[in-house]
Design a protein around this nucleic acid. Structure first.
Lengths: 343, 343
DNA sequence: TTGTACGCGTTATCAC
DNA sequence: GTGATAACGCGTACAA
């Protein structure tokens, strides 16, 4: 049986309150301090977090609500958040969606919040899939802080913090690479139209064209919402055949992988037939003769920042102060591959 | 303020014990049951897990101690464990090591256990890096069940459960592919010599050769312990130059990726110059003209099984019964690529 | 079946 | 600075 503060009190002859105060950093007479420390060592005392939590009404856990673990971007984010949260003394309660269609993911995100709230978490860090943010209303009402990653939810902008990359800038930079190499016939693929990130990246793509005075052909700005893997590959192949682009931009990791597959099926070579810029490091793996140009998100920084914001927020909250929502926009960097041919 | 069972009691006019009993599945008079259910709905009552935990001395969390999230094998395992644990009513407290050398990882694993034990977990699922298992002694002493993934720790075999693939069989099957295609000069790369998984896979490799009466050249059975990424690539390149193998087997995901890199640097083509069998799906990504043959671990099944075993174990433990350690060995499957040339 | 009273380990509020 | 004592919300003998 583990030792409790009662045992410490008995052994030192001091009162419970004194022990408790010492443990929580209060001032105690030097000789008492030593006695307590000795007893703690001797009895191998550890505070019972559960009891403490019952009293203080917090749990020491932060809930991490993520999509299914299907790509390295998500993985790296989790790694980093978890690392930083722990460094700040918090445990990470992980909840990843099962893969599924939009309706399922929507439902899952709702369940995620319920589950974590029930288990008990002090805050929630979320990479939202459900764009309207209804799932975040309950924690917010309960006064549980929320930090968003990767996406912003405009309706909640004044109540939640968020950290993400400069999506417009990143897409613009990616497009510029193609443009600089002389490509004019570019087809670009984005998430669903309802997706915040996808819309921003599409903006960046179009920005780049407009900045140079090139026309924007909406048929070449392809939103790929709600399609399974197979049908999105088909969709890409269609576009490839129809417009015969010399350049392709894929605006996220999943799309990059699908573009690669479509290209292979169409027997198109990179960069000889088509130049490609992708996202999130898909297609830059070792042993590839052709490594894609790729927009890389600063995952470590994103994760660290999100965890830091959450921690600050929790500390404010503990003191009963209000915490102004933070919004951090980080720059993405370009991985220089050999997937672009000058024309 | 959230409703408590006191509120329910007041509202229904019943005693606290009755409410509590109902919540925990006890028998209650039908009319009382309805009254309670009504009150629960009306007051949106949720049991306070923290208070319950203080009483029952468990937390509803299972700790998941994993290496740094650097490959998809680990990622899929986590996804699945987390999914199944949740289905069984448990939360997942994730703790991933930071990347680092062996000494650091050893230390980290110790910290992981301390941290989780402190935060409070009912059980621990661990993909061990620390082969001697000293980090598991403390939870075991405390009566906290441990389930191992991927590796076995022989010294603890009678105290912990484990679920992993048939490493010997998997390596043998991989080697057979090369052998069947006529390759005789094969160099194989394994984890460090001290690594259980690596040793088993090396056994399988040698088994395959011996079974056909081919000699085993220990110089071609390469253990790569304690090397950074750069130096292990160098090491592979050396072996490649020295023995000019027609076939290469890489016994895990990291090594597969390094072999790919070394091959590229040596300007060796797959499968024209060298035939390759890898592990864990590295090198079978979309858009590759050449996809590797690869031994795939049944990650969903591994994860599900580990979580199930843990849950059973916890239930036994809750009833004060002893739980015989379970050992599950699952088969790996071969991904058929186009990285082997018949000779 | 139902209700009372107590305990789980800690923190917080007072007097002292 | 210190020490009783009352919460925190729930489970559970025990008695009714």
């Amino acid at each position: 049986m583990a030792a409790t503060i009662k045992d410490i009190a008995r052994r030192t002859g001091l009162g419970l309150a004194t022990i408790s105060k010492y443990i929580n950093g209060g001032n105690v007479l030097p000789k008492n301090r030593e006695a307590i420390e000795e007893a703690i060592r001797a009895l191998d005392f550890k505070v019972n977090e559960t009891a403490r939590n019952l009293k203080t009404r917090h749990t020491g856990y932060v809930g991490l609500v993520m999509p299914a673990l299907t790509n390295s971007f998500i993985m790296q984010i989790i790694q980093q958040i978890q690392l930083q949260l722990r460094a700040n003394g918090y445990g990470t309660a992980l909840y990843c969606s099962a893969p599924g269609n939009e309706e399922i993911r929507r439902q899952t995100e709702l369940e995620a919040i319920d589950f974590l709230l029930q288990k008990g978490v002090d805050g929630i860090i979320n990479l939202p899939q459900n764009e309207d943010g209804v799932h975040l209303l309950k924690p917010l009402e309960l006064g549980i802080p929320v930090t968003l990653i990767d996406k912003q939810i405009p309706e909640l902008a004044d109540r939640v913090s968020s950290v993400m990359i400069d999506n417009v800038g990143a897409a613009r930079a990616a497009t510029d690479e193609l443009l600089n190499a002389g490509h004019r016939n570019i087809v670009a693929f984005f998430h669903g139209e309802t997706n915040y990130t996808g819309r921003r990246r599409a903006e960046g793509f179009m920005d780049a064209l407009r900045q140079r005075g090139y026309p924007v052909d909406s048929e070449r700005v392809v939103f790929m919402g709600g399609l399974g893997r197979g049908s999105s590959v088909d969709r890409i192949r269609e576009k490839l055949r129809q417009y015969q682009p010399t350049g392709v931009f894929a605006a996220n990791s999943g799309l990059t992988s699908r573009v690669l597959e479509a290209l292979e099926l169409e027997d198109l070579r990179v960069p000889d037939n088509v130049s490609v810029v992708g996202f999130d490091g898909v297609g830059i793996e070792d042993g590839r003769r052709i490594k894609l140009y790729s927009m890389l998100q600063p995952t470590e920084q994103i994760g660290t920042t999100a965890a830091q914001i959450m921690t600050e927020q929790l500390h404010f909250w503990a003191k009963g102060e209000v915490f102004p929502p933070q919004v951090r926009t980080l720059p993405a960097t370009l991985f220089v591959g050999n997937s672009i041919r000058r024309i």
